[in-house]
Simulated scan of single mutants.
Amino acid sequence: MVLGHFSIDQNLMELTEHLTVLLPIACYETTINQNIQGHIPLHWHDELQFVYMNKGEAIFHINGEGVELLEGNGLFINSGLLHMAEEKTKAASYICMNVAPSFVLSQELFSTFVYPYVQASNLPYVNIDGNKEWGKIILESILKINRLLKEKQPFFEIDISTQLAKAWKSFMMHGIPPAFNKTEASKNEKMKRMLDWIHHHYEEKVSLEDIASAGQLSRSECCRYFKRILKRSPFSYLEHYRIQKSLLLLQEEDANITEVGYRVGFNSTSYFIQKFRKEIQMTPLAYKKHKQKS
């Protein structure tokens, strides 16, 4: 089986191109364990995301909070939120619908009925109950939009717009009213700035002071942010990110294990191999051979 790779840039922004300017909405089905890392890594995107769990169970981590998603239910993830997913049951899969906020409703309605939700600090996510009528409407719309995008029948764009408006109306009527908390919004931005600094300097010698300064925090506050949002220390995340960057380098035909380790910031080959094995469940050499056969 050829495993997929979830593409994100150095800022953790998803790179997978599903949307176009003409039709800024996309649906795709994801089987979590088919990603090379065995999970969907931490990332974010500007689009609103609706998830329908069509098989098994999964745990989504959104801004550091774990959310269990059962088969037949759904989840809304707001714009710009750091999130990742891991399976709870084997071969768990979901249908994901990403949509640009500006496409949800017409331009005339956007500022009143969509923008407040995008800016809301009290709505990082919303559970969608598939057993309740309002939840069924949203989940059925996701499935219909997914089918419309695949079939591309005449005027399918209008049908998609109709289904999207129907789902959003149900979401607004039965969801949580939007509210804004400047402190929470600031915390999210500080976390992104610290991650951005790591992504630009991971090859170098990095200190806790460096990371904390990027978020304009003390070292202790920096550690608390990482523990709360990512459930790991700043240096644990740094090593995780270095391993992720090494995956691409190891796919180069003449890749040398020692050189790759040094290129991503590890000063010891044995330590690189140790951390790689723990993260990827195989050695760098085994991974390299696996990718050559793919």
Rank of each mutant, 00 (worst) to 15 (best):
Q153Y: 06
E108Q: 13
N35I: 03
D254Q: 11
I138S: 01
Q274Y: 08
P24S: 04
Y94G: 00
S236H: 07
L3R: 14
A165T: 09
K150Q: 13
L69S: 07
Q34D: 15
V206K: 12
F235L: 06
F180S: 08
I137M: 08
I158Y: 12
S141L: 00
Y28I: 02
Y262E: 14
T20P: 07
K231C: 11
I25M: 05
L249W: 00
K245R: 15
S79L: 08
F6E: 04
F276P: 00
D9F: 00
S213G: 02
L285V: 01
R232K: 15
M173Y: 11
S111R: 07
K291C: 12
A212D: 05
G72V: 04
F156D: 06
E47F: 10
K166W: 07
I138L: 00
L105K: 09
K144Q: 12
R219V: 13
W197G: 02
Y262S: 13
M13D: 11
I145R: 00
Y115A: 12
E140L: 02
V2T: 12
V264R: 05
E204C: 02
L164H: 07
A167F: 05
E17I: 10
N146C: 09
H45D: 09
Q34M: 14
Q119Y: 07
L230V: 02
F76G: 03
E253H: 12
P41A: 09
